[in-house]
């Protein structure tokens, strides 16, 4: 088989990993949001309009991680990737793997606060404003690992390997960069979502305490994001030192 076929095969395999893995988290998260919205509406049908709105906004944010994955998968399938070679082939596969794994945690994590907010809006309609704010801020933090993964995927896709001689260590560094940035996003994305869900739960019970909850949530989420930043650092080291 020639290098061109290998490179195209790697791009298609990367696209499949990207969308296959990337669909899991968001779909699960949106399911959690819909489940909690249904439970809430069953108990308080009068609040269904507000619950539905919160559910749709929360689901839209949770969907963004898998939309990143879709964009990378489509780029991998439809872009002609120039000079074929070992490093190009590995970088295309790594870009897909990175975005696919990177969307797992943030997609699932963003669904948890959406579910908690839907439940809260159904139970305590007057807390709707505070709940929506907490939900959106918490989801935004939970999405950061997906943005790191998108960044590294773009770097892998658009890095010019024509000057680098093909060697096994260089290929391993490129694949390692994708693995580090992608899989390191799973935990922080989920963890930030768990935190935001608990904050939304608390604000639904005590809407007057939403300011102190927002602060506590952000401190806790910031610490749980640290490992995603380590993953990004290791990934950039692997990409640019080798």
């Amino acid at each position: 088989m020639d290098a061109d076929a290998w490179t195209r095969a790697a791009a298609y395999a990367g696209a499949a990993m990207c969308m296959g893995l990337g669909a899991i988290g968001s779909a699960w998260g949106e399911g959690v949001a819909a489940e909690q919205a249904s439970r809430g509406i069953a108990r308080q049908p009068a609040n269904s309009a507000a619950v539905l709105r919160t559910m749709l906004v929360g689901q839209a944010v949770a969907e963004s991680a898998s939309i990143f994955a879709l964009v990378i998968a489509l780029l991998l399938v439809f872009t002609p990737w120039g000079a074929p070679g070992l490093l190009r082939a590995v970088s295309l596969f790594a870009a897909g793997l990175c975005m696919g794994a990177g969307a797992l945690g943030p997609g699932a994590g963003a669904g948890l606060p959406a579910g908690a907010a839907c439940h809260g809006v159904a139970r305590t309609p007057r807390a709707g404003g505070a709940l929506n704010t907490l939900m959106l801020v918490g989801q935004a933090v939970a999405q950061t690992p997906a943005v790191f993964a998108l960044l590294v995927s773009f770097l892998l896709l658009f890095k010019d390997f024509s000057g680098t001689p093909a060697s096994l260590p260089a290929a391993a560094a490129v694949l390692g960069a994708g693995v580090a940035a992608g899989f390191s996003g799973i935990g922080p994305g989920l963890g930030a979502g768990i935190t935001a869900a608990a904050a939304c739960d608390g604000a639904a019970r005590r809407p007057d305490r939403h300011a102190v909850l927002l602060r506590a949530m952000l401190v806790g989420q910031a610490v749980s994001q640290s490992t995603a930043v380590y993953g990004l650092v290791v990934s950039l080291l692997l990409l640019y030192l080798y």
Binding site: A180, F183, G187, P188, S224, G231
Partner: peptide
């Protein structure tokens, strides 16, 4: 780094 980050984050 990729897999090691999962546990602490959650």
């Amino acid at each position: 780094m990729g897999f090691g980050a999962i546990g602490p984050g959650i």
